[in-house]
Structures are given as C-alpha cells and as structure tokens.
Amino acid sequence: MGAFAGGRLPPDDVVVTALRAGDETMFAALLDTWSRGMLRVARSYVSTDPSAEEVVQDTWLAVIDGIDGFEGRSSIKTWVYRILVNTAKKRGMRESRTLPWSAFEADGVPFPDGVSFPDGGRWGEPGAAWPSPEGEALAAEVRALTAEALGRLPPRQRVVITMRDVEGYSSDEVCEILEISAANQRVLLHRARTAVRGWLADYYGSVKQAEQ
C-alpha cells in the first residue's frame, strides 16, 4: 500500500510486468485499491456478503492464474472487472436468489412517489423540499437507506449505479467492463437514480410527517 499511497496505480505495462515477476507490493496495491469496488459490484449479482467475498476471492485467484496470458487488449482494470462480473453472474444464477430471473431482468421501475404529471406534462403535486442533512444521525440513516435502496434495484441498474455513483468510475470504464453502449448505460443509470431519489423522497416525507 505504502508504495502507492496516493491511490494512483502506475501504468498498466508496469503493473503487468510487476505481477508477472511476483512483486507482492504491486499485488497488494491492486488488492487494496480495487477490492472494495469489486465487493460492491459482486453484491449486485449475489445474495449475501460471504458470497460476494467469495466471488472477489475467486476473481483474484483467476487473475493470479491468468496474468501471464493477459494480452493487453483492454486495460488491466477492465480485464479484472470482466472476470469479476462473469464470476458473479454465474454465482448469482446458481443461487438464483428467491425471485425468478424475469423479475430481475425487468428494468422498469414504476415512477416513484410524488412524481406525477397529470396536467399536460406539468407537475401535479410536486414533492416536498428535503431537509438539509444536518445531524449525523440523519446522515447515517440516509446512508443506510441508500444502501438498502441499491439492494432493491434490478441487477443491471444496480451494477451501473454502483460503479458510476458509488465508486466513481467513468462512463467509458463502465461501458467497457459491462460491454454495453453509452446510451444503454445512461438509461440504466438514469432509471436507477430516479428510483433511489424516489425512495429517499418517501423517507424524507415520512420524517416530515413524524415531526408534525
């Protein structure tokens, strides 16, 4: 970790050469930089924390085994994340959670609370203003609620919003890893954000009511 304390990894060719040479510092740096995002992405497909940890572990084992065959046709990060996504998808399919796949594949999320346009595309009843997240208690509750909201999204939306908004990856990276078009990525991201905003609005609405 110490060698790359700034969080910036060296260029790919340096990384790959070091991994092939058995450079433990480099491997540790990758582990510590990418695993947190990988855990979250894995969780988009599997049902439990231990499952997600196993997916990440199996991915790194595949990376250790496969690094000699890495051809550099994508960035190393994309390569690692593609292994992760494939591993997680397979595992998720096996677990097949409790709902049928069709339910997960449906990307349609009904328009959430407070958003209705009955009047020729204009707002009917606009949502209430949100309180500013002053107290730590409220902030912590909102964070927890957001994590829960992510868990309610269909996997394709969840994985995109996780990479983009939670982990801060660029749109290009996400498209490359998931092998989807920029337009498709944007639609998934927008639906996911819209749904999460709706759940937060519900929550703020209930807080307000409780205060009155």
Partner: peptide, 13 residues
Amino acid sequence: TIRVLGDQPPEKL
C-alpha cells in the same frame, strides 16, 4: 441523491 450515493461507507476485504 448522487451525492449520498457517493458517500457510502468504505468496504474492505
């Protein structure tokens, strides 16, 4: 909403 999403507690292996 986007800000709150970016404010999730860090995860660790």
